[in-house]
Simulated scan of single mutants.
Amino acid sequence: MAFQVENVDWVSGKNRLTQLRERVFILEWRLPREAEFDERDANAFHILISNDKREPIATGRLTRDGEIGRIAVKQEHRDQAVYQKLFNALIGLAKIEQVPTVSVSCDLEGVEHHRQLGFKPSGPVFMEAGIPRQRMACSVNNFPLPDVTKMH
């Protein structure tokens, strides 16, 4: 399947970004709406991935201070290729915008996966929307970007 990767701002992409994030976080994961949308959306960089029918299937945001988050992927598209394209686009955007370090907040089960990507724990475990999480950070220059040209 061919994907279209777009860098969108909040103003022009708000409807598509909101619909996708609501579907994943609010309807599927049952997180409170007020925990999903915040004032940082307006100034953040957003990536939107669409399928070959131009339907949004994945999104993520990069804040100006380097936090990667709000990763929402439709359930039927949760595979390594989509996540890799999304992270590559976000890291590439961080490099373009000269954001030296990126951070993520992941569930504790995701800590080892993020370590393998070059992230290191940063600070103590904390609770977010009732879920224990760990903040992790990585220099964008140390982030291994795989060759995505071989992916669908």
Rank of each mutant, 00 (worst) to 15 (best):
A2W: 09
F3G: 00
Q4M: 09
Q4P: 02
Q4D: 09
E6A: 13
N7F: 15
V8S: 07
D9W: 03
W10C: 06
W10D: 07
V11Q: 09
G13N: 07
G13A: 07
N15W: 02
R16S: 13
T18G: 03
Q19E: 06
Q19W: 05
Q19A: 08
R21C: 04
R21N: 00
E22K: 03
R23W: 08
I26V: 11
I26C: 02
E28P: 00
W29V: 05
W29M: 11
W29T: 00
R30N: 13
R30V: 00
L31N: 03
P32T: 07
P32Y: 10
P32A: 09
R33S: 04
A35H: 07
E36A: 04
E36L: 02
E36D: 07
F37N: 02
D38N: 02
R40V: 02
D41I: 03
N43W: 04
A44Q: 06
F45G: 01
I47S: 11
I49H: 04
N51I: 09
K53Y: 08
P56Q: 13
P56E: 13
A58T: 01
R61I: 01
R64M: 04
R64Y: 01
D65K: 05
I68Y: 02
I71G: 04
I71Y: 00
A72I: 06
K74W: 03
K74L: 12
K74P: 02
Q75D: 08
Q75R: 11
E76F: 03
R78K: 06
Q80K: 13
Q80T: 12
A81C: 09
Y83A: 04
Q84P: 01
Q84V: 13
K85W: 10
K85L: 13
L86R: 12
F87P: 01
N88T: 11
A89S: 14
G92V: 07
A94F: 12
I96M: 09
E97I: 14
E97L: 05
E97W: 15
Q98L: 13
Q98W: 11
Q98C: 11
P100N: 14
T101Q: 14
T101L: 08
T101C: 13
V102M: 10
S105L: 07
C106T: 14
D107F: 10
D107Y: 13
D107C: 00
L108E: 12
L108T: 12
E112V: 09
H113K: 14
H114E: 14
R115M: 11
R115V: 04
Q116T: 12
L117V: 00
F119M: 06
F119H: 05
K120F: 14
S122N: 14
F126E: 06
A129N: 10
G130F: 05
G130A: 07
G130W: 01
I131K: 03
I131L: 03
I131H: 10
R133V: 01
R133N: 08
Q134L: 10
A137I: 12
C138L: 13
S139Q: 15
V140H: 12
V140D: 05
V140L: 05
N141V: 14
N141I: 13
N142A: 15
N142S: 15
F143Y: 15
L145G: 01
P146M: 11
D147L: 00
V148G: 02
T149Y: 10
M151H: 07
